[in-house]
Computed example of a mutant assay.
Amino acid sequence: MATPRDTRPDRGEKILDAALAVFGRDGFTDGNVEEIAKVAGVAKPTVYNRFGDKQTLFAETVERGSARANERVLGVIATVDVHPDDLRSELERLGQALVGCVSHAEGAALMRLQFSERARFPELMDGIREGNRTRTIDALAGKLAQLATAGYLRLTDAPRAARQFLALVSDDALASSGFGGRVLSHDELDEPVRTGVDTFLAAFGNG
């Protein structure tokens, strides 16, 4: 008889979850490793044994959180129906997912850190941002190109349209959140996303 697999997160995962919560609230300088250990339910030496130093812990925390966020976004883009019964509703669903980073605590914490700690960690933050943005734009451009091929949109440059869609649905929502300063409800995200989709369809819709 097979032994049931242990699905509990290991200590490293617990520490990274705790670090995101603490760093997201207090920033790098004021984020206390002792507090991170307490939240993770481990001894302080365990944190150092696992990650070496505070800077390495911070970098791995932000990299892991950002990768998870990007995976969620790419997963939603992958499910976009390229022959939708209602194009507007499909694009609004996509827009809600793209700005979902400020609709939950983990995403808001990452957003705060990307803005507040960029001066301290420019290579880390810029590398993460550009990598995630490139992957998102590439995936989104592919879906928009398929929608254009199917006759739903009028496009001459799918990557440019993808960048514009992302800006239209996200800029107002991110500003309203104070770039991660507070978590927005889905109701608060509804209007900026809907308005962004309206503007996008006015420019690229095919009838």
Rank of each mutant, 00 (worst) to 15 (best):
L153P: 11
R88Y: 08
G142A: 06
V42N: 01
I15S: 02
A148L: 07
V99F: 09
T156W: 07
A167D: 11
E60P: 06
A69M: 13
L113N: 01
L189F: 13
A202M: 11
R118W: 07
L201M: 07
A139K: 03
D85L: 12
L57K: 01
Q164C: 00
D157I: 08
A18R: 03
A37M: 06
D86W: 07
G131Q: 00
E106D: 13
R88I: 10
D6C: 10
G196W: 00
L155Y: 04
K14P: 03
F51I: 10
V22R: 03
T156Q: 09
A119K: 12
D10F: 13
D187G: 10
G12Y: 05
I137C: 01
V82I: 15
E34W: 10
L87N: 02
D157N: 15
V80A: 02
R133K: 08
G151H: 09
E188I: 03
T61G: 04
G178C: 09
I137P: 00
V80D: 00
R163E: 15
G27T: 09
A145L: 11
L110W: 01
M125C: 10
S176R: 10
V33E: 00
K38A: 14
N70K: 00
F204P: 09
H83V: 11
A105E: 15
A162G: 07
F51H: 00
S103Y: 03
P4S: 05
R154E: 11
A40P: 07
G65K: 03
D198C: 01
E71F: 08
V99M: 10
E35G: 04
S116L: 12
A173T: 06
V73F: 09
A109R: 00
Q55P: 05
Y48I: 05
T79Q: 15
A150T: 13
P84Q: 02
R154Q: 14
N49S: 06
E63K: 12
L168P: 00
T29S: 10
H83D: 12
A175F: 08
F28W: 13
L110C: 12
F179E: 02
F23Y: 14
Q114E: 08
A19D: 05
A167K: 05
F179Y: 15
D17C: 09
R93I: 04
S89V: 08
G131H: 01
R194C: 01
M125F: 15
T3C: 04
G95N: 01
P122M: 11
V183P: 03
K54L: 08
F28I: 12
P45Q: 09
G207V: 05
T29G: 10
A19P: 08
Q114Y: 11
G205R: 07
P159M: 04
G12R: 15
G131L: 02
L166E: 09
Q146C: 04
D26Q: 10
R135P: 03
G12V: 11
G27W: 11
A105C: 03
D85N: 12
N132L: 09
R93C: 05
A175D: 07
G75F: 14
L94N: 00
D187F: 07
A78R: 08
F23R: 02
A18Y: 09
F115D: 01
C101R: 05
